[in-house]
Amino acid sequence: MEVLIPILAAAVRSGTPILYATLGEILTERSGVQNLGLEGLMLMGAFMGFSVTHATGNPWLGVVAAFVKGAAISLVHAFLSVSIGANQVVSGLAVAMFGTGASALLGRKMVGLTVTGFGKIPVPVLSGIPVIGPVFFDHDPLVYISYGLAFFLYWFIFHTRPGLNLRAVGESPIVVDAMGLSAARLRYVYTLVGGGLAAVGGSYLSLAYTKMWSEGMSAGRGWIAVALVIFALWNPVRAILGSYLFGGVGAMQLRIQAAGTSFPAPILMMMPYIFTILVLLVISVKKGKGILLGSPGALGVPYSREERT
């Protein structure tokens, strides 16, 4: 057990950026918009968070800047997919590529710098609980916020009035429109918020996880988050489980490498991605077409009111 605790704690830390991105994408997809640009949004968030923190010395300002940046880039995606009715896969991939390229270009000057960023703040009392304490309550504030956010979003989506509207617009935008709410406005809002959260996930990498900037530092976590949304069946609480599972695989892989085995490192590094494919395979087989039941009915389908077919 003693051996496992550091690994589990590392799983939580390395799963946190994925959790933010997954929660963001759950919101976006619940509204009926698919944003495949998470990888780019995370990188832009990592860069933005890092540079603002480096300039101001305040990591909280960095997180806020990352959120705003993510939302701003997602505005382009929202405009293309909601207002223009463009193909969301193409637009999402464009966001991913833009974010990857732009962050690499802009971040050149940041390479090699470090920030103080977020440090560990153990939660009084709770961190004293054996096992659970060190695993869950001995981290930085962004981790604690992510717990609260996941449970808040669950409550928001399933128990509040705006949450009901959100579920409805992802399922049947025409119904929402006929009830006098603007389907387009809802989709804009959640695409922006979702993109902002993905960028916050990215900023966790540069402000808490490594405290430095490096090109392509999200290393595919954005793509993993896209897959995790399906694993979570669009449920924020299930997203916690999924994120830590993937975080755990990533943390394990590092530890095995560090322990110095003869096992080829590249294969170890593939583990999270192989695991992603396996998990998708397993739940697809297990749930079969049931997956379609969890998926928002109008996901990826543009909506316009007076269109006649």
């Binding site: 128990h159 509040t160 009035r161 705006p162 009901l164 509207n165 409805a168 119904v175 929402v176 009830m179 006098g180 709410l181």
Partner: peptide, 11 residues
């Protein structure tokens, strides 16, 4: 309940 007017976010 969908789209009912009201101020509170709770139903």
């Amino acid at each position: 309940a969908l789209g009912l007017e009201g101020n509170s976010i709770l139903m």
